[in-house]
Protein backbone atom coordinates (compact mmCIF):
# COMPACT_ATOMS: atom_id res chain seq x y z
CA UNK A 1 0.00 0.00 0.00
CA UNK A 2 2.74 2.38 0.93
CA UNK A 3 4.58 1.57 -2.23
CA UNK A 4 1.54 2.26 -4.30
CA UNK A 5 0.96 5.55 -2.60
CA UNK A 6 4.54 6.63 -3.08
CA UNK A 7 4.56 5.67 -6.71
CA UNK A 8 1.56 7.98 -7.17
CA UNK A 9 3.73 10.81 -5.97
CA UNK A 10 0.92 11.91 -3.72
CA UNK A 11 2.82 11.36 -0.51
CA UNK A 12 6.45 12.27 -1.01
CA UNK A 13 9.18 12.62 1.60
CA UNK A 14 9.09 15.59 3.92
CA UNK A 15 10.79 17.93 1.46
CA UNK A 16 8.79 21.03 2.14
CA UNK A 17 6.49 20.60 5.10
CA UNK A 18 3.70 22.75 3.69
CA UNK A 19 3.54 21.03 0.29
CA UNK A 20 3.81 17.66 1.92
CA UNK A 21 0.85 18.41 4.18
CA UNK A 22 -1.23 19.56 1.27
CA UNK A 23 -0.32 16.41 -0.57
CA UNK A 24 -1.45 14.50 2.44
CA UNK A 25 -4.79 16.28 2.34
CA UNK A 26 -5.09 15.37 -1.31
CA UNK A 27 -4.34 11.78 -0.50
CA UNK A 28 -6.87 11.90 2.31
CA UNK A 29 -9.50 13.15 -0.06
CA UNK A 30 -8.65 10.28 -2.36
CA UNK A 31 -8.92 7.83 0.51
CA UNK A 32 -5.32 6.76 0.25
CA UNK A 33 -4.11 7.46 3.77
CA UNK A 34 -4.21 5.14 6.71
CA UNK A 35 -3.04 4.88 10.28
CA UNK A 36 -1.12 7.82 11.69
CA UNK A 37 -1.14 9.61 8.35
CA UNK A 38 -4.90 9.98 8.61
CA UNK A 39 -4.63 11.50 12.05
CA UNK A 40 -1.92 13.90 10.86
CA UNK A 41 -3.92 14.98 7.85
CA UNK A 42 -7.07 15.45 9.92
CA UNK A 43 -5.17 17.58 12.39
CA UNK A 44 -3.91 19.75 9.58
CA UNK A 45 -7.37 19.99 8.07
CA UNK A 46 -8.73 21.25 11.36
CA UNK A 47 -6.55 24.35 11.10
CA UNK A 48 -7.77 27.37 9.18
CA UNK A 49 -5.31 27.01 6.32
CA UNK A 50 -5.74 23.27 6.08
CA UNK A 51 -9.50 23.72 6.12
CA UNK A 52 -9.37 26.16 3.21
CA UNK A 53 -7.11 23.84 1.25
CA UNK A 54 -9.42 20.91 1.96
CA UNK A 55 -12.40 22.84 0.64
CA UNK A 56 -10.46 23.98 -2.40
CA UNK A 57 -9.44 20.43 -3.25
CA UNK A 58 -13.01 19.30 -3.10
CA UNK A 59 -14.12 22.19 -5.22
CA UNK A 60 -11.50 21.18 -7.77
CA UNK A 61 -12.73 17.62 -7.63
CA UNK A 62 -16.31 18.74 -8.08
CA UNK A 63 -15.47 20.93 -11.05
CA UNK A 64 -13.62 18.06 -12.65
CA UNK A 65 -16.69 15.92 -12.27
CA UNK A 66 -19.18 18.49 -13.46
CA UNK A 67 -19.03 22.14 -14.44
CA UNK A 68 -22.39 22.61 -12.72
CA UNK A 69 -20.58 22.32 -9.42
CA UNK A 70 -18.13 25.12 -10.22
CA UNK A 71 -18.98 27.46 -7.36
CA UNK A 72 -17.37 27.96 -3.96
CA UNK A 73 -18.97 26.85 -0.73
CA UNK A 74 -21.55 29.05 0.89
CA UNK A 75 -20.11 29.45 4.44
CA UNK A 76 -23.45 30.36 5.98
CA UNK A 77 -25.12 27.36 4.50
CA UNK A 78 -22.28 25.09 5.51
CA UNK A 79 -22.34 26.35 9.08
CA UNK A 80 -26.04 25.74 9.29
CA UNK A 81 -25.70 22.30 7.74
CA UNK A 82 -22.94 21.44 10.18
CA UNK A 83 -25.10 22.47 13.14
CA UNK A 84 -28.07 20.51 11.92
CA UNK A 85 -25.90 17.47 11.32
CA UNK A 86 -24.51 17.70 14.81
CA UNK A 87 -28.03 17.82 16.24
CA UNK A 88 -29.49 14.93 14.28
CA UNK A 89 -27.94 11.53 14.58
CA UNK A 90 -29.70 9.81 11.62
CA UNK A 91 -28.29 12.31 9.15
CA UNK A 92 -25.12 10.26 9.31
CA UNK A 93 -26.76 7.85 6.88
CA UNK A 94 -26.79 10.03 3.79
CA UNK A 95 -23.17 10.86 4.52
CA UNK A 96 -22.28 7.20 4.52
CA UNK A 97 -24.21 6.74 1.32
CA UNK A 98 -22.53 9.69 -0.33
CA UNK A 99 -18.94 8.67 0.31
CA UNK A 100 -18.92 5.55 -1.88
CA UNK A 101 -19.89 7.72 -4.80
CA UNK A 102 -16.57 9.47 -4.50
CA UNK A 103 -15.05 6.04 -4.83
CA UNK A 104 -17.06 5.42 -7.98
CA UNK A 105 -15.92 8.65 -9.59
CA UNK A 106 -12.29 7.70 -8.97
CA UNK A 107 -12.39 3.93 -9.31
CA UNK A 108 -8.69 3.71 -10.18
CA UNK A 109 -7.69 4.40 -6.59
CA UNK A 110 -6.77 1.39 -4.56
CA UNK A 111 -8.50 1.55 -1.22
CA UNK A 112 -10.29 -1.66 -0.24
CA UNK A 113 -10.14 -2.11 3.53
CA UNK A 114 -8.52 1.23 4.00
CA UNK A 115 -11.49 3.04 2.54
CA UNK A 116 -14.00 1.92 5.08
CA UNK A 117 -11.70 2.89 7.91
CA UNK A 118 -11.27 6.27 6.36
CA UNK A 119 -14.98 6.70 5.92
CA UNK A 120 -15.78 5.69 9.40
CA UNK A 121 -13.24 7.99 10.94
CA UNK A 122 -14.41 10.83 8.84
CA UNK A 123 -18.00 10.34 9.87
CA UNK A 124 -17.27 9.82 13.51
CA UNK A 125 -14.53 12.26 14.29
CA UNK A 126 -14.72 14.71 11.49
CA UNK A 127 -18.40 15.30 11.09
CA UNK A 128 -18.36 18.89 9.97
CA UNK A 129 -15.70 18.49 7.30
CA UNK A 130 -17.13 15.21 6.21
CA UNK A 131 -20.40 16.94 5.54
CA UNK A 132 -18.72 19.52 3.37
CA UNK A 133 -16.49 17.09 1.62
CA UNK A 134 -18.69 14.14 0.92
CA UNK A 135 -22.23 15.39 0.78
CA UNK A 136 -21.85 19.15 0.63
CA UNK A 137 -22.55 19.83 -3.00
CA UNK A 138 -24.78 16.94 -3.70
CA UNK A 139 -26.88 17.74 -0.65
CA UNK A 140 -27.01 21.35 -1.66
CA UNK A 141 -28.43 20.37 -4.99
CA UNK A 142 -30.85 18.02 -3.29
CA UNK A 143 -32.04 20.54 -0.76
CA UNK A 144 -32.50 23.25 -3.34
CA UNK A 145 -34.39 20.91 -5.60
CA UNK A 146 -36.52 19.64 -2.69
CA UNK A 147 -35.68 16.18 -3.88
CA UNK A 148 -35.13 13.06 -1.87
CA UNK A 149 -31.94 13.44 0.15
CA UNK A 150 -28.95 11.46 -0.90
CA UNK A 151 -30.38 9.52 -3.78
CA UNK A 152 -31.01 12.42 -6.14
CA UNK A 153 -27.70 14.07 -5.50
CA UNK A 154 -25.91 10.82 -6.06
CA UNK A 155 -27.65 10.28 -9.34
CA UNK A 156 -26.47 13.65 -10.54
CA UNK A 157 -22.91 12.92 -9.61
CA UNK A 158 -23.00 9.61 -11.34
CA UNK A 159 -24.71 10.81 -14.50
CA UNK A 160 -22.84 14.02 -15.21
CA UNK A 161 -19.53 12.55 -16.37
CA UNK A 162 -21.33 9.88 -18.33
CA UNK A 163 -23.52 12.25 -20.31
CA UNK A 164 -20.49 14.38 -20.98
CA UNK A 165 -18.74 11.42 -22.51
CA UNK A 166 -21.72 10.54 -24.68
CA UNK A 167 -22.27 14.05 -25.94
CA UNK A 168 -19.73 14.31 -28.76
CA UNK A 169 -20.24 10.81 -30.10
CA UNK A 170 -24.04 10.98 -30.33
CA UNK A 171 -23.87 13.28 -33.35
CA UNK A 172 -22.09 10.67 -35.43
CA UNK A 173 -24.24 7.57 -35.81
CA UNK A 174 -22.52 4.47 -37.04
CA UNK A 175 -23.82 2.73 -40.14
CA UNK A 176 -23.09 -0.62 -41.66
CA UNK A 177 -22.02 -0.74 -45.28
CA UNK A 178 -22.15 -3.72 -47.60
CA UNK A 179 -18.98 -4.37 -49.50
CA UNK A 180 -18.81 -6.01 -52.90
CA UNK A 181 -18.16 -9.39 -51.36
CA UNK A 182 -21.12 -8.97 -49.04
CA UNK A 183 -19.03 -8.41 -45.94
CA UNK A 184 -20.36 -5.84 -43.50
CA UNK A 185 -18.23 -2.91 -42.43
CA UNK A 186 -18.97 -0.29 -39.85
CA UNK A 187 -18.13 3.37 -40.27
CA UNK A 188 -18.98 6.83 -39.10
CA UNK A 189 -21.57 8.74 -41.03
CA UNK A 190 -21.23 12.34 -42.11
CA UNK A 191 -24.23 14.62 -42.78
CA UNK A 192 -22.53 15.85 -45.95
CA UNK A 193 -22.52 12.30 -47.30
CA UNK A 194 -26.25 12.15 -46.73
CA UNK A 195 -26.71 15.33 -48.73
CA UNK A 196 -24.77 13.95 -51.68
CA UNK A 197 -26.56 10.65 -51.40
CA UNK A 198 -29.87 12.50 -51.55
CA UNK A 199 -28.65 14.58 -54.50
CA UNK A 200 -27.75 11.42 -56.37
CA UNK A 201 -31.13 9.91 -55.58
CA UNK A 202 -32.98 13.00 -56.68
CA UNK A 203 -31.09 13.96 -59.81
CA UNK A 204 -28.91 11.01 -60.62
CA UNK A 205 -31.24 8.10 -60.91
CA UNK A 206 -32.42 8.32 -64.47
CA UNK A 207 -32.12 4.64 -65.16
CA UNK A 208 -34.87 2.50 -66.56
CA UNK A 209 -35.71 0.97 -63.21
CA UNK A 210 -36.15 4.25 -61.44
CA UNK A 211 -39.58 4.82 -62.89
CA UNK A 212 -42.06 4.73 -61.43
CA UNK A 213 -41.21 2.72 -58.32
CA UNK A 214 -37.79 4.33 -58.04
CA UNK A 215 -39.25 7.80 -58.00
CA UNK A 216 -41.83 6.83 -55.43
CA UNK A 217 -39.19 5.23 -53.29
CA UNK A 218 -36.89 8.23 -53.43
CA UNK A 219 -39.73 10.62 -52.79
CA UNK A 220 -40.87 8.67 -49.77
CA UNK A 221 -37.42 8.11 -48.40
CA UNK A 222 -36.46 10.84 -46.03
CA UNK A 223 -32.68 11.06 -45.83
CA UNK A 224 -31.36 10.60 -42.31
CA UNK A 225 -30.01 14.15 -42.22
CA UNK A 226 -33.39 15.77 -42.55
Amino acid sequence: MNNAVRSDGLVGGAVVAEISRREQLSALADGQLHGDEVADALAYAAQAEGHATWQLYHLVGDVLRSSDLAQPANPTFMARLRNELAKEGPVVRPAAAAVPRVDVVAPAMAEAANASVFRWKMVAGFASLAAVAAIGWTSLATLQGNGAPGATGGAQLAISPESGANGPSSGAPVVAVADADGGAQVMIRDPRLDELLAAHKQFGSTSALQMPAGFLRNATFETPSR
Partner: peptide, 12 residues
Protein backbone atom coordinates in the same frame (compact mmCIF):
# COMPACT_ATOMS: atom_id res chain seq x y z
CA UNK B 1 -15.22 7.62 -46.28
CA UNK B 2 -17.65 4.89 -47.22
CA UNK B 3 -21.34 4.72 -46.47
CA UNK B 4 -24.48 3.16 -47.81
CA UNK B 5 -28.25 3.22 -47.74
CA UNK B 6 -30.03 0.19 -49.04
CA UNK B 7 -28.50 -0.71 -52.38
CA UNK B 8 -26.91 2.71 -52.78
CA UNK B 9 -23.23 2.86 -51.91
CA UNK B 10 -21.08 5.89 -51.34
CA UNK B 11 -17.32 6.45 -51.44
CA UNK B 12 -15.65 9.79 -50.69
Amino acid sequence: QVSGMGATQLLA
